[in-house]
Write a protein that binds this DNA or RNA. Structure first.
Lengths: 253, 253
DNA sequence: ACCTGAACACCGTTCAAGT
DNA sequence: ACCTGAACACCGTTCAAGT
């Protein structure tokens, strides 16, 4: 390895180190506690060096969000060898998203916060480009599953209907439910129902609406969830057990 | 009116004035530009007085969000005299939510931002209580429609199924779609589809999944949307026409 | 070419003094 | 009882000096 390459690698590693520190601060003290001063204090570098990596505080936030998207990507990748029909694969993505929001709540918060234009407007072009590529990559997973279902004729498109519409429907529903559930403590209206179950049932109902075969009454998708937990996401199940999540939040898993 | 009451009224009015200023700042310069200094500069009072109303900056943000929820409530109220079946009423709520996000984008952003625990944790108890009451009031609208559908036997609950589950499903889907669409410029995957139409179709599919009568193939819900635009929300249609919204965002209406 | 940290401007918050 | 604005601590960002 040339000395130039070694240098570049060291710089990349340092950036990950800084992102990790930012993530830890958010995790333990909340988004408000994240300051450039704080990050500088917790690392071995100076403020100027931190600013060599991140053009501004918002840029750092998007960096944390992007790292989160990579974690989500890793969770998605765990589904690679999973045997099951397309609807089960889709449930796999949903379950991965749920683990993501529970295991990395601070990154999930960043992914959400970063949708704020006041933040996005101040982000460096490189970082925004990276975000775009990550989002496309994540979305292509869902699209691939839908296309598989179309090929297997488990799903068929109506007039003026496209695969990405079904993708959008599933995605927005999952995302919306996770955002609301993350704020669930304050939502009295949701009390008394098992939100974790609801999260999946809503998707079952939606995809039944699309007439995606096999339908709920023909197939036991709750067993699929159990199988996914045991075969694909057993490590995440253990991690959740170790994390001392308040019982109100645990209910969703 | 006693002098004490007059005083109290003046203070309430002043608070609304301050919230209005904050809203204007966010609308025209973004969430980042909102500072207590800025609000003080744009009003006739001192910093101390601003802090008499809002315990901290986050408290002001929640106040803006709450004012937004009231605007949403007003939009919901416009549906009071609307004649139509329960599914059409539900579409009315959805449409109201859509107008809200388009006509008051800064408040919608606040409602979303305020779901961030770092903000909620710093909010005064009074303000949080007000938020709770507003959310309950908004949610009860949806629940009332669902209960109406149950009474009319247009909808029936399965085993272990409750009205609020159907409410949560509709709500999270609508909310998730609006959040994603608000960030739609960056979502390449959504390009080439008519997001405004999709927004409603997703809900159609969901409620068909619930077997909510009349189903899509039996009833022209696109006509319902047109009717709602003309009969209930004609003022909002005009306002949207006057707002010079970039065409990419206009597509949704 | 990259790193440092002092320096600066700005912002959130407080509170003694004023009415 | 309420209002004021100076004062303070903290934070984001820059950049001249150093290696």
């Amino acid at each position: 390895m040339s000395s130039q390459n070694r240098k570049r690698l060291a710089i990349n590693l340092r950036e990950l180190e800084l992102i990790d520190i930012a993530r830890d601060v958010i995790e333990s003290e909340g988004l408000n506690a994240l300051t450039m001063d704080q990050v500088t204090a917790l690392c071995d570098y100076s403020k100027g060096t931190v600013y060599n990596h991140f053009s501004c505080k918002e840029d750092l936030l998007v960096a944390v969000s992007n790292e989160g998207l990579k974690d989500l990507q890793s969770l998605f990748s765990k589904l690679d060898g999973f045997q099951g029909n397309a609807r089960e694969q889709m449930i796999g993505l949903q379950l991965a998203y749920l683990y993501f929001s529970k295991l990395y709540p601070s990154q999930f918060l960043c992914v959400l916060s970063v949708k704020n234009p006041a933040i996005l407007n101040r982000t460096s072009d490189n970082r925004k480009q990276q975000q775009l590529e990550l989002e496309i990559s994540l979305e292509s997973r869902g699209l691939a599953i839908i296309k598989g279902a179309l090929e297997q004729q488990e799903l068929s498109l109506g007039l003026h209907q496209e695969a990405k519409q079904i993708s959008f429907a599933n995605w927005s529903q999952t995302f919306g439910a996770l955002v609301l559930v993350n704020a669930a403590e304050s939502l009295v209206g949701l009390q008394g129902i098992d939100i974790g179950k609801e999260f999946f049932i809503n998707a079952f109902v939606l995809n039944d609406g699309f007439k995606w075969q096999p339908m709920i009454h023909e197939f036991d998708y709750f067993s699929s969830i159990e199988r996914l937990k045991q075969v694909v996401f057993f490590e995440e199940e253990i991690l959740i057990g170790e994390k001392h999540i308040p019982s109100s939040k645990l209910a969703i898993i």
